[in-house]
Amino acid sequence: MAAERKAPSILGFPHCPEWGAGAHRRALAGHLRRCRDHAGVDSRQAARCISASESTLSRVETGLGALKEDQVERLLDLYGVRDPQERNRIALLVREAAQPEVWQPYAQVAPASLRPLLAMEPAARRIISYEPQLVPGWLQTEEYAQTVLRAAHPTLPRAEIDHLVRLRRQRLQMLRRPTQPPVLLAVMDSEVLRRQIGTPGVMYRQIRYLLELLEELPYQLYLQIAPLEVGAAGVIGHPVVHLRFFTPDYLPDMVYLEQYEGAVYHDKPANAERYLAVLNNLCGVASLAQHSRSLLEEALERWQ
């Protein structure tokens, strides 16, 4: 007789409030879907159990929606999840998933297309970012960010621009947290250091700030600069961000592709691996991270 399939477990996903509500909701979503599949319960029966529609259940199982604790309890009963440790850990995830998202203080201005990235990046173990036109958002000074945002959104009121700048600046705080901070590998084209954003003074202070960050965060921030000579490896025309998480069994890799009026996300393994290969190729032909300081100092002299 075939061996009985092992029931899925959530105990490998730790309770880490610093990872944010989005990571807990996404891990819970995948686990509930696996529990339903293991129990052989169809989506109609599960939706009826919590007095919801199948579309609502689908949103929950893809991490786009949330359930109340009593609804999750009913699903666990239906799926035959009896282990007290499993149920206690799931209850913790439900409560963390209900906490405010990191972007919610800026909900009036945070673009909907950016919110999934903002929600998930605090849970990342490693972030690889490629930026062909600008200094990456995490690393921008206030005045550089203001100049960029005013150019992209010329009709936005000053107060909304200021809120967007604060949102952009606060994202770097995750690299400074004492427990499990992500590692950010940022790759940008060399022309970013030549392209004048604002006044020469804005550029000078921006490059000096990059040098200060490399000094402050030697183990969390790595910067690579891709020269024009990289050729075909550097023809990616838009920003790309690849997230890899501490718990890949529960949180698969995520890729963010920025577009002018939106973004595309990929979390299927084949797509995520494809973009990771492109980024790794670009990292391989860019200047080594240990050379970035001297390249920034040369750029600083030009703007001085």
Results as ranks from 00 to 15, higher is better:
residue 21 A to I: 10
residue 168 R to S: 07
residue 146 Q to F: 00
residue 303 W to C: 09
residue 43 S to R: 15
residue 35 C to R: 10
residue 243 L to H: 01
residue 189 D to Y: 06
residue 127 I to E: 14
residue 92 L to C: 15
residue 146 Q to S: 00
residue 187 V to R: 11
residue 131 E to Q: 12
residue 28 L to Y: 00
residue 280 N to S: 11
residue 214 L to Q: 11
residue 103 W to P: 01
residue 258 E to P: 05
residue 182 P to T: 05
residue 69 E to S: 12
residue 266 H to D: 00
residue 78 L to Q: 10
residue 285 V to K: 14
residue 19 W to M: 07
residue 214 L to K: 09
residue 247 T to D: 09
residue 7 A to G: 01
residue 159 A to Q: 03
residue 280 N to P: 04
residue 204 Y to A: 14
residue 233 A to Q: 11
residue 222 Y to W: 14
residue 19 W to F: 15
residue 106 Y to S: 04
residue 293 R to H: 06
residue 40 G to H: 13
residue 172 L to C: 02
residue 224 Q to L: 05
residue 300 L to N: 05
residue 304 Q to P: 05
residue 149 L to D: 05
residue 285 V to T: 14
residue 76 L to W: 05
residue 69 E to L: 08
residue 100 P to A: 04
residue 164 L to F: 04
residue 72 V to G: 10
residue 300 L to Q: 11
residue 43 S to V: 08
residue 116 P to I: 06
residue 283 C to M: 12
residue 79 Y to F: 14
residue 197 I to V: 11
residue 83 D to A: 13
residue 242 H to E: 09
residue 74 R to L: 15
residue 107 A to C: 09
residue 52 A to Q: 12
residue 19 W to Y: 13
residue 205 R to V: 02
residue 266 H to S: 06
residue 34 R to A: 07
residue 148 V to K: 06
residue 157 P to R: 00
residue 85 Q to K: 15
residue 37 D to W: 12
residue 61 E to A: 12
residue 268 K to Y: 14
residue 27 A to T: 02
residue 261 E to D: 15
residue 260 Y to C: 14
residue 188 M to T: 14
residue 285 V to M: 10
residue 273 E to Y: 07
residue 19 W to E: 13
residue 264 V to K: 04
residue 7 A to T: 05
residue 166 R to E: 15
residue 87 R to M: 02
residue 84 P to T: 08
residue 173 Q to V: 06
residue 56 T to F: 10
residue 241 V to T: 11
residue 73 E to N: 14
residue 301 E to M: 04
residue 241 V to G: 01
residue 252 P to K: 05
residue 93 L to S: 09
residue 154 P to I: 06
residue 284 G to Y: 00
residue 304 Q to Y: 10
residue 126 R to C: 15
residue 289 A to H: 13
residue 93 L to M: 13
residue 25 R to D: 06
residue 155 T to P: 02
residue 38 H to P: 09
residue 128 I to M: 13
residue 298 E to G: 00
residue 11 L to A: 07
residue 148 V to M: 01
residue 78 L to F: 08
residue 199 T to E: 00
residue 118 L to M: 06
residue 66 A to E: 02
residue 111 P to Y: 10
residue 246 F to P: 08
residue 272 A to H: 09
residue 26 R to C: 07
residue 114 L to P: 02
residue 294 S to Y: 00
residue 18 E to M: 08
residue 55 S to M: 11
residue 273 E to K: 03
residue 11 L to R: 08
residue 279 L to R: 10
residue 144 Y to V: 02
residue 190 S to M: 03
residue 281 N to M: 12
residue 257 L to T: 08
residue 301 E to Q: 05
residue 1 M to E: 12
residue 229 E to H: 12
residue 100 P to V: 05
